[in-house]
Design a protein around this nucleic acid. Structure first.
Lengths: 103, 103
DNA sequence: ACAATGCGTAAGTGGTGACTTACGGTAAGA
DNA sequence: TCTTACCGTAAGTCACCACTTACGCATTGT
């Protein structure tokens, strides 16, 4: 049941922005924070939340800390979505057939 | 770009609980609120947010208002996830090949 | 017309979280 | 060793959001 923290984590725009910066590949904290409208400690705090949600992972590389995307968190959301999607679509189609809703 | 409000909407546990109550099919506000630890107006407010995010839709049925799941919101999240998934996995695999990470 | 039901909204409050600056700790270079 | 770079954490502040009660509106039944 880790999709809860994953949703919480991705809800914040700034945090999602941090997360999306890792899409192209691993980056250090400094490089992530560079050019962002918030301070570097703020980015660190966001990364902490993302890590706790299983969305990112980190490794030490000399004096700097490199973060990368952890597929585990995304997989959790995807699993929840897939399960929900099936039931919801089924109920939705049953509703369409019963009521004849077009739009 | 509606996935932003969708994530925001699904981040709150109570609101997600409201949303999940619609999985089995359309329900009136009263039936949704019945048995929940929050008041009925609170449920109304949550439904308002969910509707704005494209996650639910409503129709009038006599004196009561029936809410059901709107696939549009889920589709938005799924699209974002799919797009992200592809890029992230690609970068992740490139990282695995380069570094030889096993776990 | 009047009462009753079902719901949305207004107004106000408490708690949480996102941000800041300041500090401490670790690893590399001179 | 001393400095420098890079980062996480502590402490404090401020805005926002989830919730409550009170109220108003529309629809149905008598």
């Amino acid at each position: 049941m880790a999709y809860q923290s994953a949703f919480m984590a991705l809800a914040d725009p700034t945090r999602r922005h941090v997360f999306e910066r890792l899409r192209g590949g691993p980056k250090s904290v400094g490089r992530i924070a560079h050019g962002m409208p918030v301070s570097r400690p703020a980015v660190s705090q966001h990364l902490k939340v993302l890590k706790k949600a299983g969305l990112v992972q980190d490794r030490a590389e000399g004096t700097q800390r490199v973060y990368s995307i952890d597929p585990k968190g995304l997989a959790a959301i995807r699993a929840w979505l897939d399960q929900f999607w099936e039931d919801a679509l089924k109920a939705f189609q049953a509703e369409v057939e019963k009521k004849g809703v077009s739009a």
